[in-house]
Design a protein around this nucleic acid. Structure first.
Lengths: 194, 194
DNA sequence: TCTTTTATTGATTGACGAGTCAATAAACTT
DNA sequence: AAGTTTATTGACTCGTCAATCAATAAAAGA
C-alpha cells in the first residue's frame, strides 16, 4: 500500500487534526494519540513524521499564522487607499475564521506557549511585527510621524478586543469589535487633520 | 502534632504554592505533587483540603483576582479627582506585581481556562465588570454619555497592552504601556471638551 | 532480481500522575 | 476515660501517555 510522497500529506493532515483537537480540548492537553486518530493514522506514524509532540504544536501554530497572513494579504491587495487598507486589516483580524473555536483556542494557547517555548515566542514576534508594519504603512499617509505610536496602540487594541470578543458569551461579536477600533481610528486621524 | 485550625493555613499555602508553580512551568501543567511539595505537605493532604486539582486552580485564580482588586481599591481611595482615579486604575493594572512571572502566567492560563471551565469564565467576567464599572465611574464626569463606550475601549486596551508587555522581551515595559493608554485617554477627553 | 528506501503499525516500555484508603496521632468533647 | 473530630501521611490503584522498536510491505533503484 505504501504510496510514496506521503510526507507532506500526512503532515498537513496532522496539523489540521492538531488544531481541531486543541479546539475541542480548549487547551494543549491533547495527546498524540487523539491527534493521530483524527488524522487517520497511528501514533507511531505521527512521531515518525514530526519527531515529537512539541514540533507538532509548533507546526500547527505556524499554520494558523500562515492562514492569518494570507487573509490579511488577500484583503490588502484589493485596498487602494490608506483608509481601505486599515479597514482591510481590521476585517481580516476579526473575520469569522478567526472566531472559530479551534482558532481562538490556538491563539490563546499560543500566548501561553510563548512564555516558555522559544519557537512560539519567535512566531508571535513575527505576527506582531507583520501587523505593526502593515499598520504603519497604512497610517503614515494619514498621520505622518505619529504612525508608529498609533500603530502600537491599534495593535494592542486589536489583541485586546479580540481577546474579549473571543471569550465573551455572545460568540463572535465581531462587528462591535471592528466598530470600536474604527471609532478610535477616526478620532485619531481626525485630530491630525484639524 | 495535629494542631487544630490548620485548614485556612494549609489552603493559603497551597494557593501560593500553586501560583508559584504555574509561574515556574508557564502553564497549568503542574502536578498536585509539585504544589504540595512546595507547600510543605503531602499530596493526600492537598486533596483532603481541596478535593481536586481544578478546585486548587480556581482558588489560585480567585486569589490573583483578589490581589488585583485590592490594589485597585487601595489606589482609588487616595484619588480624589476623576483624572486621578483613571490614573490609579492604570497604575494598579500595570504595577510591578502584575508583571511577576507567576502572575503573568496565571492570567494567561486564566484566559485559556475560561474557554472551557465555567468557574474560570465567571471569575473573568467578575474582573471585567469591575474594571468596566470603575472606568465608567471615573470617565462619566469627563466625557458624559460617551463614558460607557470609552470604558469598553480602554478596558480592551488595558488587556491588549498588558498582553504585549507581558510577552515582550524587555520584561515589564510598564511605563510605556501606561503612557500609551494615557495618551489615548487624553486625546479622547480633549476631544470632548472642544 | 536483489537491495535500499519509504510507509506503516501493533505491541511494548517506562514513566508519571490523580485520587483513594487505611492507619497513626493529637486535640477536643462528654 | 472513652469516643469523636481533625490532621496527616505512606502506600497503593488505576489509568494514561510519549516515545521506541521490531516487523511488514510496497515502491524505486541498480
Amino acid at each position: 500500500m505504501p504510496k510514496l510522497g506521503m510526507e507532506p500529506i500526512r503532515k498537513t493532515a496532522l496539523v489540521k487534526a492538531t488544531i481541531m483537537e486543541i479546539g475541542r480540548a480548549g487547551s494543549l492537553d491533547v495527546t498524540v494519540g487523539q491527534i493521530a486518530k483524527r488524522a487517520g493514522m497511528s501514533t507511531a506514524l505521527a512521531h515518525h513524521y514530526f519527531g515529537g509532540k512539541e514540533q507538532i504544536f509548533l507546526a500547527a501554530m505556524r499554520h494558523i499564522l500562515t492562514l492569518y497572513g494570507a487573509e490579511v494579504r488577500g484583503a490588502m491587495v484589493l485596498a487602494k487607499t490608506p483608509e481601505a487598507r486599515l479597514e482591510a486589516i481590521l476585517l481580516a483580524s476579526f473575520s469569522p475564521a478567526n472566531f472559530r473555536r479551534e482558532v481562538v483556542s490556538a491563539w490563546l494557547n499560543f500566548y501561553v506557549l510563548a512564555q516558555t517555548t522559544p519557537g512560539a515566542r519567535r512566531l508571535l514576534a513575527v505576527y506582531q511585527r507583520r501587523l505593526q508594519s502593515n499598520l504603519v504603512a497604512a497610517l503614515r499617509p494619514l498621520v505622518g510621524a505619529r504612525a508608529v505610536a498609533l500603530a502600537d496602540a491599534v495593535g494592542a487594541l486589536i489583541d485586546g478586543v479580540y481577546l474579549r470578543a473571543a471569550l465573551s458569551e455572545r460568540p463572535s461579536d465581531a462587528e462591535a469589535a471592528v466598530q470600536l477600533i474604527r471609532a478610535y481610528l477616526a478620532a485619531e486621524i481626525q485630530e491630525r487633520k484639524e
